[in-house]
Amino acid sequence: MSTPVSSPSSTAPQPPVQPVFGHRHLLGIEPLKPHEITAILDLADSYAELNRRPEKHANALVGLTQINMFFENSTRTQASFEIAGKRLGADVMNMAMQASSIKKGETLIDTAMTLNAMHPDLLVVRHPHSGAVDLLAQKVNCAVLNAGDGKHEHPTQALLDALTIRRAKGRLHRLNIAICGDVAHSRVARSNLILLGKMENRIRLIGPPTLVPSQFAEFGAEIYDDMREGLKDVDVVMMLRLQKERMDGGFIPSEREYFHRYGLDAEKLSHAKSDAIVMHPGPMNRGVEIDGTLADDINRSVIQEQVEMGVAVRMAAMDLLAQNLRAERSATAG
């Protein structure tokens, strides 16, 4: 089987050069440099092309084992990582961790050590606590991809959002981007804020002050509690899911008041640029943070495209990490 997708891992060994992506793990956007973000997105673009063909296979991960460990419920992210791994030829295994040994009192580190002994190459981890994936990455000798840790980071989501924006807008810099809703509880918001900031965009955070704490201003974002004012002249509107399961107190008076003041509908969107795109990381609460009709409007909403780019971005990220892993192993072996 041959593939037109150029992937350095499928070419002949080359003299050692600085890798385009200089990290062992993908734990967050924070440690990435702008050129590394661009490298992932460029490779993801080519995988997006591959994914639209009838034959969707590449061989970047052939012979490697990928384990998806989800300590928190997930349907779409887990499916996306699984498809990405399988399309690149990895042996993929899913572990639903809520149902397994965690219930028997095993600690995160013990679970990690146990899995590590099975020699996985790529470990995709989601965990309800911030920093848990970093902790796990210190204890294993494979590449770890953060699929979301607590309220900290969700790097592949930010990358897929960036790719979607780049494809829709033709660039990923000097855009006015509004991130709306439950910023406080959102790892998606943090990763996006960091990534879009690194790529030199103007970012606005819109939401009630209980969900958009003022400290986010220190990241260089502008904060609005009036949605119409905040959406004025923006190029991109990113909606966040209202994280009902993370709410341990009254952050908003009711869902209907929230929808009235901060739910995205056609009228509020009319304050943005006429070609502004609408994004949502999913799963959506229709009628809470976004109007259902608007979410389905193919002229404005790129929500389906985001899901599609998710697979491509995850293929790219795993490909780059696998290249580094193979280079590291051949260096230690030779």
Partner: peptide, 17 residues
């Protein structure tokens, strides 16, 4: 209740309560 850090930029960046 439940706090693991002092509120501010650092806690926001790390996503800690």
């Amino acid at each position: 209740a439940g706090a693991a850090a002092t509120s501010g930029k650092f806690a926001a960046l790390r996503g800690l309560p």
